[in-house]
Amino acid sequence: MTKSTSTLNAGDPVISLHNVSKWYGQFQCLHNVSLDVGKGERVVVCGPSGSGKSTLIRCINRLEVHQEGQIVVKGLEMTDNIKSIDAIRRNIGMVFQNFNLFPHLTVLENLTLGPTLTRQMKKADADELAMHFLRKVRIPEQAQKYPLQLSGGQQQRVAIARSLCMEPEIMLFDEPTSALDPEMIKEVLDTMIELAQSGMTMIVVTHEMGFARTVADNVVFMADGRKIESAPPEEFFGNPREERTRAFLDQILKH
């Protein structure tokens, strides 16, 4: 049993943020944000642009460093300690708005790089694992192509498969469909829905309210670096408590 699981009791949240604050220079972009995510829970984060959504989830795998508060992932606190950062990152997959695939590697190489380098997997095993996840995202026939030869939707599905090859317990998505043409959004969302149904713990920053309604256990609304409101989707969409949430929903659902 690794240290990361030993301190965790059943029912404890897998991700727990407690009063997290962050500044860029003088500018405070997160104000005392607290959030608990249980195992298998799906949380959708929404809010106006610049409200700190990306910053928040990037703090969870330390692509950004928070200055105050606590971030605990599977019982392990995120500190400067390189070992704890590494242990936490191994449990977390991340999908970016711009895919961030490695353009000089084939799709298959993109997928096997992590497993062979950080999980010491043999090449044949890694290839098999990669093909397994490429079938899951329904593009096994693209394995030998380079990322830039694929459509945006296909690239994003490759990116999802790449994260899954690390067999993480938690997946973070930062506006995974915002860079896509409308006709490709559905294929990516379908992949994410299947992933959610498989029991993956997910935090998804998105403006796709349809996705939030079908998949989310909880919807979080952020504005100006603060968590304004958090509620299950029926309540969040049907009866938002805060004025700002209502204004945001009015705006976004009108379109």
């Binding site: 795998n61 330390r62 692509l63 590494d86 990152r89 191994r90 977390i92 997959g93 991340m94 970016f96 711009n98 961030n100 695939l101 490695f102 790089l113 992590g114 380098l117 950080t118 790449r162 994260s163 690390m166």
Partner: peptide
């Protein structure tokens, strides 16, 4: 983004 993707795969600096 290339550095960030590599970090999220927990690759080391030299990798």
């Amino acid at each position: 983004g290339q550095y960030e993707a590599a970090a999220s795969l927990s690759l080391t600096y030299w990798q």
